[in-house]
Design a protein around this nucleic acid. Structure first.
Lengths: 333, 333
DNA sequence: GATATAAATTGAATCGTTTCATCTAGGAGG
DNA sequence: CCTCCTAGATGAAACGATTCAATTTATATC
């Protein structure tokens, strides 16, 4: 049906080897170049990448595995990856692990069996032994957002500790002492880091910390709502609350609205991840924002280097800065 | 390196043909079944999908092309597609056309040359001749969200006309007459439909319409902001505004907040697409919400049917219902 | 002009499957 | 016992590229 390299060779009156070499950018005589070009044009020849993959065992495809596709964080990162890898001719397969380690493992196996050239993973859970178990150490893989135990891999992370530190420190300097924190599961890397940032402020300022004000959710809107309600129902509720991811921030705001708490008069609030939010709600929300597109771009670049065989200082961990943006949702006590 | 079907055949002492037939679900004697199973297990054999693709010219991969990846609408749909197609063993390649018809065409060509088995497209622009031009009529493709001219294709759409009708009608019954509309480009299908819904209310209620209150943006946050500001700066500003997509809704709310307009006292506002918003901001926003996951799921199912050769009543257009959810952002005049 | 060297070209083998024409064995029917 | 079927099994020939050892052609040197 479609023209093959043989047809081109026949029409151009050269060997298939010559056509192949020309197609792959090797030197070919001027005369042959012209003949081949002409033949390709006349036959509307398109190289069959599947056949090529079979010989080269490169599929020019990478997979991105995330705990959930339908959220801004994943998508912005994926957009960054797609955009960056596009220029090198790679395509991006997306996989949703649905925050399920078993599913994550299955998806990794699936894409590995499909001969993708590389994988970017936002791991679900804190253990990553299954990752190397499935992928081996032949197939390049880059972690993002979260580090895992049991897998030596490149990673692109965000400096959560310091970002949270800044935010909480600001609350301290505004005079707050009872500062609530709504954070993620104890076993998730980013959640641990964000807690660490919080704790460090208290240590550095030599202030007592009330463990009861730290609430562990699961990064969903629902728990954001629930935990915020809990905090505000305490006998001695916090005067400020820091929420450690986007979805929970939404939930927390919903709770605040529902209970009828005035921000910042009755409560100072700091959210996470989305600048949009900051401008959208009234009073403007103070937030810690992550450089999402940059995470994707950096992960893609790193993976690309590994795929072309560059193994310099493996495993490499890139840490990007997050920023605290102050809005009108916090107030001096 | 990795075991091939030949190794399996050798170890099991049968021919490669037999192994292949077994692998593909054809009848094989009980004894051979056992021997092959055993050999596969011992060799940890994995069928090479690239080689298979070369013979079958099926890649078990579909592409999804959208104008932008990093927005809730695209992502929710892609999540729906991925989830649905996963069960059939397909993987999903994502492509960002960046709202650029040229890029869209290039991406389509790219995935076609990669031998994907099907394509789901949220087209950018109102013309779709380039789609059939590139894809031909061999490669199954379904449109979503938007219809285009010049391409006969299956499509999954949302009944924008009636959803908007409901929302605007509600404003009318609340006594509003000067109703602003911030909508999308005149040449984009959904924007046209949403305008149509708006106009129809005025016709049906036999009310005069002020064309000056209809503002055409480009579905971005920026124009939402700009157009809302413009509307409110009119000598005789609208008493209610309907914003016809998510990003512009965000922008519009930002403008409203900035100018300091009280909602719903000074202005009734209806937004689009995201239920989250409704609950998040105060007063709760009235919104028209689309069934995003369902769009993805339906598009995937349709594409799947086409890929297996089911050509019943082509081209088929499925129209899903959107819903108007009333919040506290609108008020009787 | 002869020789040495480098650069292009050739075409067959290969990647790991599927497929198809051909062959085999075993059971049914007479 | 022979013939006819049929369900399974066989193995070679694709699929459409790359690659490599061998060969031809071109270029440089003396």
């Amino acid at each position: 049906m479609a023209a093959t390299i043989k047809d081109v060779a026949a029409l151009a009156q050269v060997s298939v080897g010559t056509v192949s070499r020309y197609l792959n950018g090797y030197e070919v005589s001027e005369a042959n170049k012209r003949k081949i070009d002409e033949a390709i044009r006349r036959l509307d020849f398109k190289l069959n990448p599947v056949a090529r993959s079979l010989k080269t065992s490169k599929s020019m495809t990478v997979a991105v595995v995330v705990p959930a596709l339908a959220n801004i964080f994943s998508m912005s990162i994926i957009e960054g990856i797609e955009r960056h890898l596009d220029q090198y001719g790679y395509s991006v397969i997306v996989c949703d692990s649905q925050s399920d380690v078993q599913k994550e493992k299955a998806k990794l196996q699936f894409v590995k069996d499909k001969y993708v050239d590389g994988v970017v993973i936002m791991p679900t859970g804190s253990d990553g032994t299954h990752i190397t178990e499935v992928l081996g150490d032949e197939l390049p893989a880059v972690l993002m957002d979260r580090l895992v135990e049991g897998a030596k891999l490149d990673a692109v992370l965000v400096d959560n500790v310091n970002a949270v530190y800044q935010a909480v420190e600001r609350l301290i300097t505004l005079g707050h002492r009872r500062i609530g924190m709504i954070t993620g599961p104890k076993d998730i890397y980013t959640a641990k880091e964000r807690q660490e940032g919080y704790r460090r402020v208290f240590v550095d300022y030599n202030l007592p910390m009330d463990e009861n004000l730290i609430r562990y959710g699961d990064y969903t809107e629902d728990t954001g709502y629930k935990l915020m309600s809990e905090l505000m129902r305490l006998d001695c509720p916090p005067t400020a609350v820091f929420v450690a991811n986007y979805e929970m921030t939404i939930g927390a705001i919903m709770a605040v609205n529902e209970i009828g708490i005035q921000i910042p008069d009755q409560l100072s609030l700091i959210g996470f991840d989305q600048l949009e939010l900051s401008k959208l709600i009234k009073p403007s929300l103070s937030v810690v924002v992550q450089p999402m597109a940059e995470i994707g771009q950096k992960a893609a670049e790193m993976l690309y280097q590994r795929m072309r065989g560059n193994c310099d200082n493996f495993p490499q961990v890139i840490r990007l800065k997050a920023h605290f943006i102050e809005g009108q949702s916090i107030k001096r006590l």
